[in-house]
Simulated scan of single mutants.
Amino acid sequence: MRRLPALAALAASALLLAGCGIFSGSGETDDGVQPDQAESPTQDPDDAFQSLQVNMVAQSGTHFPDGVDGVTIGCSDTLVTIGTVPIEAETTEEHVSAAVEFLLDDSQYYHGDPAFTNSLTLSETLELSNVELDRDAVQVELTGEPIVQSECEAYRIQAQLYGTVASTADVEEVSISVEGTELNDVLNVEPFDTSQLFNDE
């Protein structure tokens, strides 16, 4: 059984209750959570309280009144980085762990109206085993099995996990394995290009 850390649970509750697909003219949700363009965090690395950078998907054809900026993935979907309320994490590894567990423990596929989606909700056996950060690279180990219902969902799962880890750790070199096999191979998709998350254009 998964155990979401208390602080991550608080962040998750705040984001999900916000209805993160509902925009005001400023592009923020009702409580200030911003579905920002996927880009590296600009938070003070010495601050123990930082927002989780989690990735969700605006599926192709979904119309948002104010538009959505992000990275185009797979089946013409848009990967969007969402900053949650700050949580306390003493190390980058803990921060990455909380972000990954946020996605894995989320039980709601759709969020907001129009909706962002979390394709990891169906993969109930997936659990985080370990996170290691070595200078400019991060390695994440998972156990269990990802549930993939279509090729489009495979791309969404891939982008959500690699994007979330890269955005949270603020590094481009990311390795995610499931039971010892690289996630890209498990999903049978080409490697995800994390460098697109850090474009300053």
Rank of each mutant, 00 (worst) to 15 (best):
R3F: 14
P5A: 10
A6H: 14
A9R: 15
L10C: 08
S13H: 07
A14P: 00
A18C: 11
G19Y: 03
C20R: 12
G21C: 03
S24A: 08
E28N: 06
T29S: 10
D30S: 05
G32S: 05
Q37C: 04
S40P: 04
P41C: 08
P41A: 15
D44C: 13
D44V: 00
D46A: 04
D46G: 09
A48Q: 01
F49H: 09
L52P: 13
Q53A: 15
V54Y: 04
N55V: 10
N55T: 05
V57C: 04
Q59K: 10
Q59C: 06
G61F: 00
T62Y: 08
H63R: 04
F64G: 04
D66Q: 02
G70M: 09
G74W: 07
C75Q: 14
T78W: 01
L79E: 10
T81L: 06
G83N: 07
V85Y: 11
P86I: 14
P86G: 05
I87F: 01
E88T: 11
T92V: 06
E93A: 00
E94K: 05
V100F: 02
V100Q: 02
F102N: 13
L104K: 08
D105I: 02
S107H: 04
S107I: 08
H111R: 03
F116V: 05
N118K: 01
N118S: 08
S119W: 07
L120W: 01
T121Y: 14
T125N: 03
T125Y: 04
L126A: 09
L128Y: 09
L128G: 08
S129W: 06
N130R: 13
D136R: 11
D136S: 13
Q139A: 15
L142W: 14
I147V: 15
I147M: 01
S150Y: 12
A154Y: 11
R156K: 06
Q158K: 05
Q160L: 00
Q160R: 09
V165R: 05
A166I: 03
S167N: 14
S167Y: 05
V174L: 09
V174D: 15
S175D: 12
I176L: 11
I176R: 01
S177N: 11
E179T: 15
T181D: 07
T181Q: 09
T181V: 14
E182T: 13
L183T: 12
L183C: 03
V186N: 14
V186T: 09
N188H: 14
N188S: 15
V189I: 12
L197E: 00
D200Y: 10
